[in-house]
């Protein structure tokens, strides 16, 4: 189980990096970056998980109450929005989303 948890984190990180390097589309780069980021969530959960323990929430919660997320998930979403905005600008300026065909940056 230890191997699986940390293995998934390492796999997500490296697979995302491979995706960023191989990508021919800026939107693909942004998506691969979020894959890399999600590896950090898996790693944090893997380190912090304690077998047999309950979530440290001491209220009587009716069963089925959902919504446990990390503040970082929201932050990631907004940062992704900025990166996608950059992709929109790049497409306006170069007429392509392929990083290899964008040529020299103009002022």
């Amino acid at each position: 189980m230890t191997l699986l948890a940390y293995g998934v984190a390492a796999w997500l990180f490296l697979a995302g990096l491979v995706g960023i390097v191989r990508s021919r589309n800026l939107i693909g780069v942004v998506i691969c970056l979020s894959v890399v980021q999600s590896s950090t969530y898996v790693l944090l959960l893997a380190i912090g998980y304690r077998s047999g323990a309950k979530a440290p929430i001491f209220a009587d919660i009716p069963s089925g109450t959902p919504v446990v997320t990390l503040t970082d998930v929201v932050v990631e979403a907004t940062v992704t929005a900025v990166l996608l905005a950059l992709a929109v600008q790049a497409h306006k300026r170069f007429g392509t989303l392929d990083p290899d065909r964008m040529g020299v940056m103009r002022g």
């Binding site: 230890t2 948890a5 390492a10 990096l17 304690r50 077998s51």
Partner: peptide, 21 residues
């Protein structure tokens, strides 16, 4: 990436076992 993977394996080996925080 091969170097990074090796470093990650080395680092993860020093972390507590899953579930044993």
């Amino acid at each position: 990436a091969v170097g990074l993977a090796a470093l990650m394996a080395w680092g993860f080996a020093g972390l507590p076992d899953f579930g044993g925080y």
